[in-house]
Design a protein around this nucleic acid. Sequence first.
DNA 1: TTGACGCATGCCGATATAGGCATATGATGA
DNA 2: TCATCATATGCCTATATCGGCATGCGTCAA
Lengths: 120, 120
Amino acid sequence: MARAATTSDAFNAIAEPQRREILVLLRGGERPVTELARDLGMSQPQASKHLRVLREVGLVRARGAGKQRLYGLDARGLRPVHEWLGGFERFWSGSFDRLDEYVQDLKQARQEEPPDDDDQ
Amino acid sequence: MARAATTSDAFNAIAEPQRREILVLLRGGERPVTELARDLGMSQPQASKHLRVLREVGLVRARGAGKQRLYGLDARGLRPVHEWLGGFERFWSGSFDRLDEYVQDLKQARQEEPPDDDDQ
DNA sequence: TTGACGCATGCCGATATAGGCATATGATGA
DNA sequence: TCATCATATGCCTATATCGGCATGCGTCAA
């Protein structure tokens, strides 16, 4: 198996930096493809492809406007992602001091143990 | 180019469902690899590989405990992701709840102001 | 030392990616 | 109708993935 499709869910769709930039830009309002491509310094086909992915996940909607096609944000699909991350909020907020203890434990363990830190 | 490495950032790391499940499990405290593999119904090598990815992104820390290796959560790396998503919160709450309304707003805005709200 | 256990890693195969380039499709206006 | 502009799509290459399987490596107990 390869990696999951970018169109499988919002998690995969926003894993790509350029797609995140597109979403950020669209926060300011609808935009045609060429404008997005220009502002983000990518080719028009690439912009279209990224927009296609975002469309298939439902994060973006297209609307024909004459020769152009205006893309607009539909960020509702990001909500589940945000909520999933919210489940970890207590681990980085101050009220949860257990992390600090944990980190201390780690430091101790690391000092005592030989460097098996293969981590890059 | 292929897709960005899963170890490039937290966005890519959490794009994989099994890794998300690992993180959720680790919210309950440190766990050895085999236990994670068993609870999530995956092979031990797969668990190790996923944990390696999470380790390289810094979402997880390992601590040697005898024969075992206890993995613990370090969710601080998720904070930037959560914050990025927070930038879209207003689009799924309140008046932006429905895309239709949102599109209407955009149309109005565009009619009132010149559309070349120029880039950046 | 030997064996058993826990975990990490290497190799393989199948797949899907991101990007570049060329081209097809669609709408507009003359 | 035809030419033009705005997008979408197809083909191609290089790459990185995820999974399975086998195996290496380190730790512990006899």
